[in-house]
């Protein structure tokens, strides 16, 4: 990942201060997520509902 992208992602997450104090931890976190994304099953089934699902409260 290039430095500009890295900086943009850190800014978007609001982690500028944390990245200054723990740059390796923040860089590792981005690498971890990139690795994990590759392993995540991605169904293309349009009607597959998430769990837990939303239920309107009953009175």
């Amino acid at each position: 990942m290039d430095d500009a992208t890295l900086a943009a992602l850190i800014r978007a997450a609001g982690l500028e201060e944390t990245a200054r104090e723990f740059p390796d931890d923040v860089r590792d976190a981005l690498a971890t997520v990139a690795r994990q994304r590759a392993a995540l099953p991605r169904s293309s089934h349009p009607r597959l509902e998430p769990t837990p699902g939303y239920l309107a409260p009953r009175r």
Binding site: L9, A13, G14, A29, L40, P41, R42, P50, T51
Partner: peptide, 26 residues
């Protein structure tokens, strides 16, 4: 800290993929 930080970089769409796949695994 190293175990918690990745959570701030997970795209919302990934969380929804995981939640939908949870239905399939159940």
């Amino acid at each position: 800290r190293r175990r918690l930080l990745p959570g701030l970089f997970i795209p919302a769409v990934d969380l929804m993929h995981a939640a939908r796949d949870r239905t399939r695994l159940i």
